[in-house]
Design a protein around this nucleic acid. Structure first.
Lengths: 349, 349
DNA sequence: GACGTCATTGCATACGGATGCAAGACAGGG
DNA sequence: CCCTGTCTTGCATCCGTATGCAATGACGTC
């Protein structure tokens, strides 16, 4: 553990410090600090002189030292666990970009089911991140979450954890699932099925309950409800085949797009069914793949940009800092009808 | 910019420090520091006593302060730009996991084509990351790279930049592309086409040159070479249709799997061709989608785990620190034959 | 019993920048 | 010309941990 990982060759010269810069310029270190602090009390021409000279000698303020004295890191910890579903990488990418835009860096915490969470999350505390954004609450208990985020801004995206007193930003799963049910009804389907991913996640529970309820309200028959066990293509495939085996369904709502993709392929290529003629398929999320012509997946689009905007906004304005009342933002999504459920009767070109 | 982002409510009590802990325990702050430093000179029972008490009062060493005094952050900057291709999120996830396993955190730098790179990358220097792993060299010049990584360990994954004096770990694109060419030859194809993503990237150049060269060696005809302009499904789709328009090809090698997926769907569903009977398709990477039954994509599998292992190893043993001779590791991949190019003549079940 | 060795421990200071406070500079008003 | 208020600037200290060095004590040896 104590290898000479950093070779102390001649090449190991430290970067220039504010003090050195100050001495060279005949000013105080405070002046240098102020030159790089927006809004600090310093004469404009002095600031310019310092900044210009800094450029010449390639001085960059040391962020670590700044963190220490300001007790502010400008780092947001992003806790993720399930990167199989393309929805999350896409979300994370946009999120980190938005954070960067307001001067925040993203420190990735990739938690694994197997290993000990405490140890992984203790880094969250030691690194003194300003805020924590949890994108995967799948395997985190409210207690763990409370501990990990204690004393700092925290915020869940796309998950709700009841006993954790955390604010969250989430797509309106209920409206989405009801919209799918309504859509199935409108296109004449009456015998529907639901495929869940991980049945205990809040997203799944919300989607499932809302869908099942609406299906009943509309007088449709729920002829199958399959728990795929995970959010993957393969799981969707198996679930679809199981539903076909049981027979009778004329529409399937998959808890997310990646499941739906697997299901769709299985229905067409393994079960030999026509989609949407024999059976309609819908997913949730509207990931990139959903718009590919091959899938043309009817789905409920999560308002990713809005989710991110709201989340970043909450971090920026401090409304998710401890002590503030927690808020749960449910953002509306949009039903996207494609030919996996309903083929427009237009020219087939 | 100076909003009271961190509310200084009563809730804002600072966490306990090593000094406080020390005072409570009647020992010196050094002792506390040593208790948490593996290999430090301290009596085992004192260490235990301190650690136990620390647990009781919920003391966690402040990593920021530690970074400052050790000039070591245990943070690796990961520079990425193109997250459209699922290959990269998958890579990043595994990479960050591996880094975490040896106590390194991943700070994400998501660079965007449009905005000014200098500003984005200056964070790399200010944050004093111990090492930089660049997964996207697409839009970075050697000069920029040299500047951004100056004085710290740096390493390119899946890219080579000639004028940057950086070590890199990369899949053997040449062997891979030759293997694809050989495979096309073996299955009887003689009129092949190549589809590039971004033509100026080194991966593309390597793959293209190797493929074209091998095609010539084998006496096959290269009847089309299309630059798709980006690595996307849609680009692959367009490229495939263009090749069909020109006519004559009986096999297409796409520079990566996501292009191939788009191409494959277009060939089957828009051009009405049989794959692989009329035209064989191959990609590169072996992303998850390639193994989906619908695509069953013949591809050259990048040895992702090995790439990561080697990269992490180089960071761990310091062999990519400045001053060390740069090394270029080319790791062998594996040709994966699936039915997009060659259908096993087995029972169709 | 004296001395060398080694393991522990504390002291003091370094790491690089931020900031409260006071001093100096300067302008305007009386 | 003095007084007061505003703007700049430097000084000193702080942020929390790491670590070289010296001091202390324990132990073994001859």
């Amino acid at each position: 553990m104590d290898k000479p990982e950093i070779p102390d060759d001649k090449a190991k010269r430290r970067p220039i410090t504010a003090r050195q810069l100050a001495r060279m310029l005949g000013v105080s270190q405070s002046a240098v600090s102020r030159a790089f602090t927006p809004g600090a009390s310093i004469a404009p021409d002095l600031r310019d002189r310092i900044k210009q000279f800094a450029e010449e000698v390639d001085y960059h303020p040391n962020a670590i030292a700044s963190m220490l004295s300001k007790s502010r890191t400008n780092i947001v910890g992003i806790v993720v666990s399930d990167m199989q579903n393309p929805f999350y990488p896409a979300l994370i990418e946009k999120l980190s970009r938005s954070l960067q835009r307001i001067g925040l860096q993203s420190l990735l915490f990739n938690i694994t089911k197997g290993s000990n969470l405490e140890e992984q999350l203790s880094a969250l505390r030691r690194y003194n991140v300003d805020a924590v954004i949890i994108i995967s609450a799948t395997i985190l208990s409210g207690q763990t979450l409370r501990w990990a985020t204690e004393g700092r801004a925290a915020l869940l995206i796309n998950r709700v954890v009841e006993d954790a007193d955390l604010s969250c930003v989430i797509c309106d799963n209920v409206a989405g699932s009801r919209a799918i049910a309504d859509h199935f009804y409108e296109i004449g389907r009456r015998r529907v099925a639901y495929v869940s991913g991980l049945s205990h996640t809040t997203t799944n529970r919300e989607r499932q309950n809302a869908f099942v309820t609406r299906v009943a309200e509309l007088g449709m028959v729920l002829c199958a409800r399959v728990d795929a066990g995970e959010y993957s293509y393969e799981a969707g495939r198996r679930a679809a085949l199981e539903i076909v085996d049981r027979g009778g369904a004329d529409a399937i709502f998959f808890a997310n797009d990646i499941l739906a993709a697997g299901g769709l392929d299985a229905l067409r290529e393994e079960a030999g069914l026509q989609v949407p003629e024999d059976i309609a398929v819908a997913g949730f999320d509207d990931i990139a793949l959903a718009s590919w012509p091959h899938y043309a997946l009817t789905t409920f689009r999560q308002p990713v940009d809005e989710i991110i905007a709201v989340a970043v906004g909450m971090i920026e304005d401090g409304s998710c800092y401890p002590g503030r009342p927690i808020t749960i933002k449910r953002l509306p999504g949009e039903l996207i009808v494609r030919s996996s459920s309903y083929r427009m009767s237009d020219s087939s070109k």
